[in-house]
């Protein structure tokens, strides 16, 4: 089934089998492998993307339901103000370890900063709860979100 998806501002024609999650269309049909497969059941957040400005687990979103939606992935998040600030803060604090969850962490963190300019620790716990990091980089993620908020404030 040929469908048209708007990903990172560009229209892409794709032809997934019915019922294929957006995750696998991104990774295998479009070779955009920054969005990661971690669990397939929306329990780890590694596959988080933005769909119409909402952080969603792409392993649960069917590609065929997304025609007309604005999809943003890790590959383009740096071009938004919050995305750039988050990437800068992640770099300043050397947040990453293995890095496999970090695409999803960054997508959730950007959504948080888009919603709340100066998040509290409780806000961070609430927004980041669905993003697992087996390396346990959480303390740095927390510090980096606060730092990104400061960067955006200027």
């Amino acid at each position: 089934m040929t469908i048209s998806l708007k990903i990172n501002g560009a229209l892409k024609e794709v032809d997934p089998a019915p019922g294929t999650p957006l995750l696998w269309v991104l990774r295998e049909e479009l070779a955009m492998t920054g969005t990661k497969f971690g669990c397939g059941v929306a329990a780890c957040g590694a596959c988080t993307v933005h769909i119409d400005g909402v952080a969603e687990r792409s392993c649960q979103a069917l590609a065929e339901d997304l025609e007309g939606s604005e999809i943003t992935t890790i590959e383009a998040i740096g071009s938004s103000p919050a995305g750039a600030a988050v990437q800068k803060a992640w770099t300043e604090l050397d947040v990453v370890q293995c890095g496999y969850c970090q695409s999803g962490q960054i997508m959730s963190a950007v959504k948080l900063l888009n919603d709340i300019a100066n998040p509290t620790d409780q806000d961070i716990d609430d927004y980041m709860d669905g993003n697992a990091c087996r390396c346990a980089t959480y303390v740095r993620i927390r510090a980096a979100i606060h730092r990104a908020a400061d960067i955006m404030e200027g």
């Binding site: 955009m32 969005t35 998040i77 740096g78 947040v95 960054i106």
Partner: peptide, 12 residues
């Protein structure tokens, strides 16, 4: 602070 793998891991 200059992890050599940070740049690759924050943009996919």
């Amino acid at each position: 602070r200059a992890r050599r793998d940070t740049a690759d891991k924050i943009n996919g």
